[in-house]
Nucleic acid binder design. Structure first.
Lengths: 338, 338
DNA sequence: GCGTGGCCGGAAAGCGCTTTCCAGTGCTGC
DNA sequence: GCAGCACTGGAAAGCGCTTTCCGGCCACGC
């Protein structure tokens, strides 16, 4: 139990070389070490089962091999897809990802950033959606500043933050294109299941959708707001039904919300798409296989995670970069002609 | 840019106390510090925006605040639910979780453990399923030993590993109960979409299912193996259909596989449950809302993650503990009477 | 009144590594 | 043949923190 860990010093002693030499061999510094010694060190390290102490390295080098990833809820396919992209890139780069979940509490985001800063994470990907809550936003901005000042890089997914690299999906454009496509199906009365109004993602998608309807000369939609979750979609759909709206097509600003909404419609005996067409946004994998398959705006989620990780790890230029990824309207069985 | 980080020494100097005192105030050691000094330190720390360097702390204390979590694919709801449970508990305990993904490559598991060991993670939760590949298993066992010898704790979910705490779902019992329930629906010919034969989870569920059929006096099922993924289920289902089996009910050893299987059946015009009943295992949240809703064996996935994290973080007794969690058969619309 | 604890502050010795600086060696070039 | 250089190995100074140990102080007991 607790057999003391093998240290570099032991390896060095065992191999009959200095600490410096052992260090140089085992981490590939710029300095050369003769093949002879080098091999001896390698061999003893192997024999002793030496594993470098990452904390000590981080301390000595003043930089760790940690990359932070902050999401609201890892259970949500939107986030888990992004997480998959981020981890893939990080692991390829030999880094380790630290997963933080906020549970959608804005203050947690700042807390996590602070923790990550304590760990001297070299970068962090913020995948949460931006809130418009002033205080939380200021606190977060301060943490981001502190983090970058300390030499770390920050990238955001789908929420531009001052001075950070960002991957922004075409929320507005996607919403707009979707609206036109749906209007093209002949629908005249639309409803939108919007997210909480303080989320810019939700607002952008909604704004785009409205613009698209306007393009098509269709009346503005009824909007019902709900939480950005499956249950939020469920509740919002019930509320919509209760309102006796005459909508024939409903747009949920998120696939996950659409999922909840479909459950609500089904429970109330509203057939999709016969009685009501429904579309979402994101194209999370699970909803491609459902019946009816969900019409949506496809976002390359894993790729977005990869891009974000790439931005944040590529040694970093100074100015903030923004990468836009386009959404692609995919009409499936959940939307019908009207 | 890179404004040097505030260190404890600066706080101490600024507050006019020694390093020791500052440290004692800011981390709550066993030693008391007079209210006067204490407050002064706290205040300066606050003013300067001091954040302790986690690497330095880890080094000095010889223990970090990292908890590892190893999964195959964070995108898979099974794993993301477990991950949610683990992160919740870890974050409550003030720890930080490091997410490692294996992409189902057995050797990655050992690699990740080694990395985690380098970081002196204080514990790790292994949520991957055990392989029967001898070499990989030995390598993994060695890493687990090394990890525990170094003072870290290891817990496994659903795979007993020598000397580790384990959370084991009732795979066999669940499979058995499900088989009986399905037989009770009147089905006589069964098929099973099994996972890769080297996964004990898959084998246990299958074995339980067979036992349950035997209990009910029903003939053994046709078994088709596929990968433990949505696509694996899809392929296996196609293979099953091609085999012209007369099965009226199929059990996919995993909900995710069932999802793929349902897609395959649908494509081939096989109606569920009219032409074919189908059941899964796990009860991942997304499949409760689909049409038809999937019959399955419910496992409290998030709770399993919480339990695993709890086991591994509770200061640890010496002998390995095992917590069993029962699966509960839930029949929904995807299975019909025959 | 003085010895004996109990407390609290501070000095300093690490924790395991990286990296700078210095010393020694063998070459090259004239 | 020797100055100068490139190159390699080692000693040692940190990195930012924790913790042991020591010294000073006060309160107490006899």
């Amino acid at each position: 139990m607790s057999a003391r860990q093998v240290t570099l010093a032991e390896v060095a002693r065992q191999a009959g070389v200095s600490l410096a030499t052992a260090s140089r061999v085992l981490n590939g510094s710029t300095r050369q070490v003769s093949g002879d010694l080098s091999e001896r060190v390698l061999r003893t390290a192997e024999e002793l089962g030496y594993v470098p102490n990452a904390s000590a390295q981080a301390l000595a080098r003043n930089s760790s091999s940690l990359v932070g990833l902050v999401v609201h809820d890892i259970t949500d396919p939107y986030f888990s897809c992004i997480a998959a992209g981020v981890t893939r890139v990080a692991e390829e780069a030999g880094l380790v990802v630290v997963l933080g979940t906020t549970g959608r509490r804005p203050e947690r985001e700042a807390e996590l950033l602070s923790t990550l800063r304590a760990h001297r994470a070299r970068a962090v990907v913020l995948a949460g959606s931006r809130t418009t809550d002033r205080a939380a936003q200021a606190r977060l901005a301060a943490e981001i500043d502190a983090f970058t000042e300390q030499g770390g890089r920050v990238a955001c997914v789908s929420q531009a933050k001052l001075g950070t690299d960002t991957v922004v999906p075409g929320n507005r454009a996607g919403g707009r294109a979707l609206a036109r496509a749906l209007a093209g199906l002949g629908h005249k009365k639309f409803a939108v299941l919007g997210g909480p109004s303080e989320l810019v993602v939700a607002r952008d998608r909604l704004a785009g959708f409205k613009a698209g309807l306007a393009d098509a000369g269709v009346a503005p939609p009824v909007v019902v707001n709900g939480a950005f979750t499956r249950d939020g979609g469920y509740e919002a759909a019930l509320e919509l039904l209760a309102s006796k709206s005459r909508a024939t097509c409903v747009f949920a600003v998120t696939d996950v919300m659409a999922m909840g909404a479909m459950a609500a419609l089904r429970e109330r005996g509203v057939r999709v798409p016969e009685d009501m067409s429904i579309a979402g946004f994101d194209d999370i994998p699970t909803l491609r296989d459902t019946v009816p398959a969900l019409s949506t705006v496809r976002l390359p989620l894993e790729e977005m995670g990869e891009i974000a990780a790439g931005l944040v790890l590529d040694g970093g230029r100074d100015e903030a970069r923004t990468v836009r990824v386009a959404g692609e309207v995919v009409l499936r069985a959940s939307t019908a002609h009207n």
